[in-house]
């Protein structure tokens, strides 16, 4: 009986002791490390002239606000050198995630899909270690005045050897989508 009494008492003490938790001054804030908030496509006319910048920015990332898209008109029958950059702007200073994509370039690829009547063609100008395109650097060529959309997609862990993928056809690429933004395109 005595031992049981002691046992139960000591358990009670243990219980109460464990309940009085240590206050550590609140939890630490987490800024999403991996999220891509911003995609910027900078297009420089090969013949010279001012850069044209397309930006999709979603500062609340997975929050309720949709991305804000800013674009500028493209000139007809012009070839642009394009460079894409992806950023995490929830961190301060913003983290350039393009660098991580470059480090794992065999696992990543950007795709550029032209939707509707926009007279736009794109071509990859960079390669990963296996000779497959990555799509950070491209050329973008316009035709006559027209409008449409350009969908820029970044896929992770895709199959770069599937049919058409190295030519920029996303159909058989598989993998997970890391970025998918739509830019309205006006050529005039």
């Amino acid at each position: 009986m005595k031992t049981i009494k002691l046992l139960s008492l000591s358990m009670l003490v243990l219980f109460i002791a464990s309940c009085s938790s240590d206050d550590d001054g609140g939890p630490q804030i987490v800024n999403e490390e991996e999220v891509i908030t911003t995609l910027t496509l900078t297009l420089s006319p090969q013949a010279g002239g001012a850069d044209i910048v397309f930006t999709s920015r979603d500062l609340d990332a997975d929050g309720p606000n949709p991305p804000t898209v800013t674009v500028a008109d493209l000139a007809p029958n012009t070839t642009y050198t394009g460079v894409v950059q992806v950023l995490n702007e929830t961190e301060n200073p913003a983290e350039d995630i393009t660098e991580e994509v470059e480090e794992e370039d065999d696992e990543h690829q950007f795709f550029y899909q032209v939707i509707g009547n926009a007279a736009v063609t794109t071509a990859y100008t960079d390669q990963d270690g296996d000779g497959n395109p990555v799509g950070i650097q491209i050329t973008l060529t316009t035709g006559d005045a027209s409008t449409g959309n350009l969908v820029v997609t970044l896929r992770h862990q895709l199959d770069k050897n599937a049919a058409g993928v190295s030519d920029g056809d996303i159909t058989n690429a598989g993998g997970d989508t890391d970025v998918e933004v739509t830019f309205p395109v006006t050529i005039q």
């Binding site: 999220v35 908030t37 995609l39 979603d58 997975d62 309720p64 949709p66 997609t153 970025v179 998918e180």
Partner: peptide, 9 residues
Amino acid sequence: VLATSRGTF
């Protein structure tokens, strides 16, 4: 659905 830079969810 929710629109993000990763597409819609």
